[in-house]
Computed example of a mutant assay.
Amino acid sequence: MILHVDHISLKGSFSSRYLQRKVHFRLIAPPSFRKGAKDFPVLLMNDGQDYTALGLEKILTAAYGSRNVNPFLYVGLETDENRMRDYGTACTADYKGRGDNARSYTSFVTEEFIPFLKKEFRASPSGQEWVYCGMSLGGLSAFDIVFNHPDLFGKAAVFSGSFWWRKKPYSKKDPEDRSRIVLDMVKEGAFSPHLSFWFQCGTLDEKADRNHNGIIDSIDDTLDLIKELELKGYTRPGQITYVEVEGGKHDLPTWSRIFPDFLKWAFSRHDAH
């Protein structure tokens, strides 16, 4: 009898001093994790409780069996009723006070959880081999953490990101709409030449078009962030990839459908990283 292993799966929890609670997580490793002692690149994901709904078991198994994708560890951080407090931008909460715990969440990820993974699960010691992704508000959180901690990451990926997150209510008297927090965060932040970014939006992400320019807000917000990154020095194409899914919605089926393409971008064997 020959044993065939599709993947290795582990569920656990981590007691965070910063969050004052246990954070549940799921770790999936490729079959080669059983052999040898080499370190692995890592995909960290917010909203890890959506693992099953996203169909990630099948998607990760296929990626592990692909000759075009480097083996990697998947780690999904689950959230709970604290989601609207933990996810956001660490520099400031939004104008309604949401994301007021994002700084503590960031400290949990960067100072507690990443060192834990490196120590216990042969996660790569090189930040350039770490990718952080998320959907919607979880995507905003992932982008914020990667952009502001480039020593710990090489890539960020955001599916239908909540880049509308703002310091004050939208005003037509502010045509540049600089109240969106990520814009000034990028403008005032440092340029890290090794970072690269992957953004996805669906043409049916929403119906709102607050400035009446014929483009839905989620696409507008993402493209405006991309422009800000380009002004900072990041190149498109090159360091910035933008994927617009025709008919794509702000939902798990859309993100699941595009996830295999994201994995090829993140862990391609031809990638310089």
Rank of each mutant, 00 (worst) to 15 (best):
M1G: 10
L3M: 13
H7D: 04
S9W: 01
G12R: 03
S13T: 01
S13E: 03
F14D: 02
F14I: 03
S15D: 12
R21E: 15
V23A: 05
H24S: 09
F25A: 06
A29Q: 07
A29D: 04
R34C: 05
R34V: 12
R34M: 11
D39P: 02
L43S: 06
L43T: 02
L44R: 03
L44Y: 15
M45H: 05
D47F: 10
A53P: 00
K58L: 09
K58R: 13
I59G: 06
L60D: 02
T61D: 09
G65C: 09
S66W: 00
S66F: 01
R67N: 15
N68K: 14
Y74N: 02
G76Y: 01
G76I: 01
E78P: 00
E78I: 01
E78M: 02
T79D: 11
R85D: 14
D86G: 07
G88M: 10
T89C: 13
C91W: 04
T92W: 00
D94Q: 07
Y95I: 02
K96F: 02
Y105M: 02
S107C: 07
V109P: 03
T110Q: 02
I114T: 06
P115G: 07
A123R: 10
Q128N: 13
E129P: 09
V131D: 12
A142I: 13
F143I: 05
N148M: 07
H149E: 03
P150I: 09
P150W: 07
D151C: 03
F153N: 07
G154L: 06
K155V: 14
V158F: 05
S162L: 05
F163A: 06
W164C: 12
W165H: 12
Y170I: 06
S171L: 11
K172Q: 14
R180G: 08
V182T: 14
V182W: 02
L183E: 04
L183D: 04
M185Y: 00
V186Q: 09
K187A: 14
G189I: 10
S192G: 06
P193V: 08
L195R: 11
F197T: 00
Q200K: 04
C201M: 14
L204D: 15
D205S: 08
E206L: 09
E206H: 02
K207Y: 01
D209T: 07
R210G: 01
H212D: 14
G214K: 12
I215T: 15
I215M: 14
D221L: 03
T222H: 04
D224G: 02
I226V: 15
K227N: 13
L231V: 01
K232I: 01
G233I: 06
G233L: 10
Y234M: 06
T235R: 14
P237H: 03
G238K: 05
Q239Y: 05
Y242P: 12
V243R: 13
V245M: 06
G247A: 11
G247Q: 11
K249D: 09
K249L: 05
P253L: 06
W255A: 00
S256F: 03
F259V: 08
F262S: 11
W265I: 15
R269L: 12
R269Y: 09
A272P: 10
